[in-house]
Amino acid sequence: MANHLHAVLFDLDGTLLDTAPDMAKAANRVLADYNLPPLTAAHIQANTSYGAKGLLTAGFGTHPLPSDMTMLRQRFLDYYEQNICEHTALYPGIAALLDHLDATQIPWGIMTNKPGFLTDMLLPYFPHLMRAHAIVCGDTLPLAKPHPEPLWYSCECMGVNAAQCAYIGDIEKDMIAASAANMAGYVAGWGYIGEADRPDKWDAHGILRHPSELIRHLSPSA
């Protein structure tokens, strides 16, 4: 499978975009509302890909979480929406990889668990990402990752066979989803992988240390 990839799907946070500075800022504003200290660098690295719940759970630590997590998450989303792209940036090498995919006519898309309204706000800051053949978010369908349905739907939108598509992500849940969808899963080794994570133990086809390493797995005739 790895030598016959004709399409690529990417996770967003921790794979295409380094959103940690802005997401952590929003989480820290919530924590400050509860008189809690800001997140550590290790907390941010290990939890950004898990969104509001991951960051805030880490930030509260041994302190009890509020009973209304919906309210807590909404407060985070409100803060994040206010400053969604102050320091967020494409990871080094992503623009060149996407240019290569476009030049070789290899379809590619984005499949993220980020809510659709935030994704729609963020992507226009990055013209490269607006060229995606499909953009599927965590609330596009009733089911989100690690269920394979959003990956299948993304492939359907791109008009490609899932068995000839790779999914690139930075957490184990991404690899579980790829495997369930019968897709080749590759770990974005530059993403939000915490010190306790063991990506070598995840059900992945490989760990990419730089975006350019994906190119050798693509079919030259795609």
Score class of each variant (00 low, 15 high):
2 A>M: 15
7 A>D: 08
8 V>Y: 14
17 L>D: 09
19 T>M: 06
20 A>T: 11
22 D>M: 11
23 M>Q: 13
29 R>P: 01
30 V>H: 05
31 L>F: 13
32 A>Q: 15
33 D>T: 08
34 Y>F: 15
40 T>H: 09
42 A>S: 14
43 H>K: 01
49 S>R: 03
50 Y>E: 11
50 Y>M: 11
51 G>T: 02
52 A>G: 08
56 L>M: 08
62 T>Y: 02
62 T>F: 02
63 H>I: 07
66 P>R: 08
72 L>H: 12
73 R>I: 15
73 R>P: 00
79 Y>P: 12
93 G>E: 12
95 A>N: 10
95 A>D: 14
97 L>Y: 09
99 D>L: 02
101 L>H: 07
102 D>T: 13
105 Q>W: 00
105 Q>R: 13
107 P>S: 06
112 T>H: 01
113 N>M: 00
122 L>F: 03
125 Y>C: 04
129 L>Y: 05
129 L>A: 05
130 M>H: 01
136 V>K: 05
144 A>Q: 12
144 A>Y: 03
146 P>H: 11
146 P>G: 09
147 H>Y: 14
151 L>M: 11
151 L>N: 07
152 W>I: 03
153 Y>P: 02
157 C>N: 12
157 C>I: 01
157 C>L: 15
157 C>Y: 04
162 A>G: 00
163 A>Y: 07
163 A>L: 08
165 C>K: 06
171 I>N: 14
171 I>M: 12
174 D>V: 01
175 M>A: 02
186 Y>E: 05
187 V>A: 05
188 A>C: 02
188 A>G: 04
189 G>H: 07
194 G>A: 03
195 E>N: 11
196 A>I: 01
196 A>M: 06
200 D>H: 14
203 D>N: 15
206 G>M: 10
206 G>H: 11
208 L>P: 09
209 R>Q: 14
215 I>Y: 09
218 L>G: 01
222 A>Y: 04
